[in-house]
Design a protein around this nucleic acid. Sequence first.
DNA 1: TTGAAAGCGATACCAG
DNA 2: CTGGTATCGCTTTCAA
Lengths: 340, 340
Amino acid sequence: MPQTPNTQTTNAPSPVPTSADVARLAGVSRATVSYVLNNAEAVRISEPTRRKVRDAAEELGYVPHAAARSLRAGHTRIVLLPTSNVLAGPLHGAFLNELQWALRRLDYTVVQYGSLGLTGDEAARAWAELRPVAVISLGDIVLCARNVATLKRAGARAVITLGPGRVPGAHALVMDQAAVGAKAAAHLVERGRRRIGVVVPQEEGLGFFSEPRLAGARSVASAEVEPLPLAHTEESAAALAARWPSLGLDGVFAYNDEYAMLLMRALQDAGLRVPEDVAVIGADDLLIGRLLRPRLSTVQIEMPTGDHLAALVDRAVREPSHFTERHDLMTAVAVRREST
Amino acid sequence: MPQTPNTQTTNAPSPVPTSADVARLAGVSRATVSYVLNNAEAVRISEPTRRKVRDAAEELGYVPHAAARSLRAGHTRIVLLPTSNVLAGPLHGAFLNELQWALRRLDYTVVQYGSLGLTGDEAARAWAELRPVAVISLGDIVLCARNVATLKRAGARAVITLGPGRVPGAHALVMDQAAVGAKAAAHLVERGRRRIGVVVPQEEGLGFFSEPRLAGARSVASAEVEPLPLAHTEESAAALAARWPSLGLDGVFAYNDEYAMLLMRALQDAGLRVPEDVAVIGADDLLIGRLLRPRLSTVQIEMPTGDHLAALVDRAVREPSHFTERHDLMTAVAVRREST
DNA sequence: TTGAAAGCGATACCAG
DNA sequence: CTGGTATCGCTTTCAA
């Protein structure tokens, strides 16, 4: 940055206090400061000295430099959580909060890194620069084996994917979205439907969930499945409803409860009766489903608790080898209400 | 971590390739590697050398170490975005995505840092450790002047708060939630209501939005305002609906459209007519509001675009002094549908 | 009990 | 055009 001719050998006189500043003010060495502030047990520091150091740090408003610390340490405690803020994903905010809490209790630094629109390669590089100790890929980005290798080479002791888990080298926490689609389709079949539409959201970042759900529905024999692209807008839903009669469908799995609500309303406005003319089922068991009339049938997904997942991550970090490759963490069950 | 007796002076032989490894493989010096990989314009490197370096980096899967780089540089390009993943906040996922995109285009590294449950002091310290160049506090954490000072001392060139903007030292982007409440209450008054309930969500992390909204409603003369605590559950809504008659209210501002949907359903189930017996208005103009029957009146909030906000952040970083203290970024307008 | 010093990885000066 | 080297802030071994 050739903005100001820098007369000094170093950068602009950094006003940010370092441990050296604390040491100077306290009249001790930097080593002592480090010992005191990190409560080092290996070394015994006299109480007066501790006080002096603490007071000095307080007075200067000293905050340690995470980058310098982890550079020296050779590793970080960063758990990278790449997430797009897509609405209507099956990862509820509450779950993410829980997970963050649990990880923080285990002394990890949780960093959410927005990666929407990056390719797997770009994302993996960007993540690797931060040298995270673990990466929990929630599925916005599709990783390949090479990406996992990049991350591992950069020091990641655990690369965890939530999904069918086909990525070689990654720890897989199986959250089989296909099962969701399968349960939904099976439920519709059970209710006497055969020609089943499956909503595929057009919004970016949902493909990782919607594709397996569609595939799962397809896997149900005795069901004839028709993919239905749908954007999260009234217009899109109305258009779909308008051509509904020509589709000849008697049931629909609407990806999740939000899209189900949207579609169900459009169908009703188009004069179709739910569930008589068409049965509708959502997924994720959102609160809104129970507020609709007819009440929305849904596929309920049992998520692991944040604590549980955090513990798993911690174990993977400590003992990468002892981590069994696959963990089943999700069960899906269809809940019948009034729309099917 | 006294797990393994370390026989080496350094840590475990780091398998992660450094620029020195690249240099060795390419048969050049580390300086040259740095020049090539950063496309340094100040020096001219021969094409064959560039190729050798690039190939070596590729072969080793070299990824630069962000911590080392920023330590050397004396500053980072990190924009910290502390967010809780609260559902139903007025900051839609789409907005956050937009903002991240825009900031990334400006070459910032956007880091979302979950801070739910931390106090202002704890959060400020934790954030400061990362030495972010800017912090955009979305309101989950209430910062005081001292916290802002901590961040600035740690190198933050811009601390931006979205809200009424009373934090001294911080750049304020005024997103006056009070105006939302005021518009809602005014709308209800206009529709002939006088005794108005205002829903206050009991969920953690929403107080920053709900309190100003309540205060805004209170600011409307000729309206008698009653706060109504409500959790985001059917039970809570049913309980509130059950004691509704005893409250003697003829209108309600339900915090946002989600809570409005919840409450409206409960009121209807309790036999009340909307809007005849009670007028209901939400906020945020979510899609669900238009899918309800009666269609939900709402307060529409005009958000700044992500690009706009990103540009503002960039300017604040480059010229902290030229940044005018307050920017009005939000306008709110009541939209009448059928529920009022 | 405390201090001096090495070194983590990357960059940018200054010599050659 | 390229190589040696000092430096960023912090931790930790070794000596005093």
